[in-house]
């Protein structure tokens, strides 16, 4: 992981990043792929739930909430 790359979990609310790779496997991977989480997709952290997890992300026009278990598997590169 190069210096500028980090886990999606660490993307602050209101910031945007670009997907570098998706680390999950199996059905979880397919599910994330289907939501459009492929390399070079732009993701914006929109809001945290009151308990801090899950976090909602804007992904290709839709707002999708992901648990930290999922977002930890996604490596991104900051755009802001």
């Amino acid at each position: 992981m190069s210096a500028a790359e980090f886990e999606l979990t660490r993307l602050p609310v209101g910031k945007r990043a670009e997907v570098v790779r998706v680390g999950s496997v199996g059905s979880m991977r397919n599910r994330l792929l289907d939501l459009g989480l492929v390399p070079s997709t732009v993701v914006e952290a929109v809001r945290k739930s009151p308990a801090g997890d899950p976090v909602a992300y804007k992904i290709r026009g839709a707002v999708i909430a992901l648990r930290s278990e999922e977002s930890r598997q996604i490596t991104v590169r900051s755009l802001d």
């Binding site: 059905s27 599910r31 899950p54 909602a56 839709a62 707002v63 999708i64 909430a65 648990r67």
Partner: peptide, 10 residues
């Protein structure tokens, strides 16, 4: 294992 949680906020 808890499965994937993906939830759209429409």
């Amino acid at each position: 294992i808890p499965s994937t949680f993906t939830l759209e906020l429409p």
